[in-house]
Design a protein around this nucleic acid. Structure first.
Lengths: 198, 198
DNA sequence: CCATAATGCGAAGATGTATTCGCATTCAAT
DNA sequence: ATTGAATGCGAATACATCTTCGCATTATGG
């Protein structure tokens, strides 16, 4: 950040700018997200944007960091019963994932679509780390000897498979492929896969 | 196409332009692929580009259509033993997929990364259709009563999971996650999933 | 209340890209 | 060889974007 916002109104402006960036991405897509449009939505001047952000990328970076942190908090607060069965955990996580992607008017979908143009791919990292930890706990609890070597790879496969299958489904509608069945299919697939001995 | 190339040299130019587009995407990424750069690589003038292509998008469209057709041909010629076991088929397909993505200096990876900005997402469609058909044949042969309703959804999940997991792995290197293990993991996952009764 | 710093502005500058158009060149058929 | 069509050219046009800068406005601390 180029300059720290010291007064209350500038702090508000920074918040407004980040919020406006989100709304701009939702309304115009990442490609249609321009500094004039962001400024207009935020109700500030273009120049003001550059007071606190090095450039447009820094602004988007801030937005992503914000949301990644929010998602991380949401995941931590998600009630998981590590003593319960695996299928319920997985099913719950996938349901949560779909809900998250459907929320925010497609902001997350747009961001994940453009993951490779993001400053840092924090969203996928957050998911990866969270579920890796969750899986560690679960396996440690249920099987003293669990495939710890393999777990990283398995979680990598599972997180990416799930994330992009969901995004592809939501991004453009596939009339023959209902969300409910995909959620069940992903659950089946993941549960089966985690049960495979290494 | 704005105008049909009639003479030999114009046909050559169209071919050169499509080839130059591929090289430009490899060298500069999709975002860095501009009409001047394409023209320069093709060794023709910018204006000539617009003789046979409505706009830049049409040019990229032509490239994608070309490659999609080539991949479809490659898949059809891939020797598959529908009488053999499922694991070998899946494993072979995944090996082929990785080889394809590694080939072409990252052209396919770049195209799939930007799937949502492609004129038509032919690549994924091609894969989807092919493997759907393949799965139909296989299941018809091995189980007279196969879950035909479910098969579309399963193939959707499998194709997208595999494709994007591979692309994510190749796009930026994950030192802790070797390709070999991912290939094996994906194979395990898919084979298990296809064996789940519907 | 005043002096100073912080903040906000938005037109103008710099850059880059897609696309067109009139003219030059090459081809192919007669 | 000639002529009309096809082809090729690339400077010029039109447009859009990011970013800066000098000036006006507002807040804060003494």
């Amino acid at each position: 950040m180029r300059k720290r916002p010291r007064q209350a109104r500038s702090k508000q402006m920074v918040a407004d700018l980040i919020d406006a960036t989100a709304r701009c991405i939702v309304a115009n897509g990442l490609d249609g997200t321009t500094t004039p449009r962001i400024a207009e939505l935020a109700g500030v001047s273009v120049g003001s944007l550059y007071q606190y952000f090095e450039d447009k990328e820094a602004l988007i970076d801030a937005l992503v960091a914000d949301r990644a942190a929010a998602i991380a908090r949401g995941l931590r607060q998600l009630p998981v019963d590590t003593a319960g069965n695996l299928r319920d955990m997985v099913s719950g996580a996938i349901g949560y994932g779909f809900a998250l992607l459907r929320a925010g008017d497609g902001l997350y979908v747009e961001l994940i679509k453009n993951w490779h143009r993001m400053p840092t791919d924090k969203v996928a990292d957050v998911l990866q780390q969270h579920f890796l930890e969750l899986a560690r706990v679960w396996f440690l609890r249920h099987y003293r000897e669990y495939p710890i070597e393999n777990l990283q790879v398995r979680i990598f496969i599972i997180v990416n498979s799930t994330l992009f299958t969901m995004v592809r489904l939501i991004a453009d509608d596939h009339p023959l492929i209902p969300q409910k069945e995909v959620a069940e299919g992903l659950t089946d697939m993941i549960v089966q896969y985690l049960a495979v001995p290494s």
